[in-house]
Design a binder for these strands. Structure first.
Lengths: 110, 110
DNA sequence: CGTATTGTTCGGCGTATGTCGAAAAGACCG
DNA sequence: CGGTCTTTTCGACATACGCCGAACAATACG
């Protein structure tokens, strides 16, 4: 069976929690990269084309924050994990949020 | 002369900083109340019709975070201060952000 | 089976954050 | 000037957060 790890239902997403999840340079860049990359990206590869480097444990921590905020969902496939933005749920709950984040000007370098 | 205390220019607002400013229950409620109330509201009164109570020093701290993120500006008038959302600047820099925050479902009570 | 790959979990560490009360600052009123 | 009102600043404190390396777990490969 395909194991899918997901956080809260769309209706239970909390704005403060979501904003907090996005209010970190690493996580924001991750979400932006995900938005660019489409669905089900190998989670260890997402930050590859950014200038961000963190340890495995740190990345795992950030992915959990994103997941528990409701922003992403994870699918296990062999030894790897694939991650995807919950676009529809996010859009349903917080319309425009993903567009806003994706269109962010000058990635964290004012 | 009218003393106006303002944070960064619109062009220099940083998304992570802005999201971080909004990712706190008190500050989010404050911004939402401001969005509802219009411009130049007496800063000590903004949270009156919410169920939030914080000390003066804590509120002052939060107002500084909001101001330094670029979200609000403050005008001194006598012994009081009046605060206003920088709607145009926010909209120019992060289109849709204020609408998104204002339309937040179930105020911090998922 | 042994090894490699991929992530998670577990301490631990340093810093940031939210909170408060007390004190100070500035403006107004008598 | 003395008193009042409003807000900021100053410690102080507890907690949360981001980060890492080491150990563990689960799967795949030969």
């Amino acid at each position: 069976m395909i194991e899918a790890i997901t956080g809260p239902d769309a209706a239970e997403m909390d704005l403060v929690t979501v904003l907090n999840a996005l209010a970190d340079p690493v996580r924001l860049a991750y979400v932006q990269a995900l938005a660019r990359a489409g669905s089900w990206v190998w989670c260890g590869e997402v930050l590859k084309d950014t200038n961000i480097t963190v340890s495995k444990s740190t990345l795992s921590h950030h992915l959990r924050v994103l997941r528990e905020a409701g922003l992403t969902t994870t699918r296990v496939e062999g030894t790897r994990r694939f991650v995807s933005l919950r676009r529809d749920d996010i859009e349903a709950r917080f319309p425009g949020l993903l567009d806003l984040v994706s269109a962010a000007p000058t990635p964290t370098r004012g």
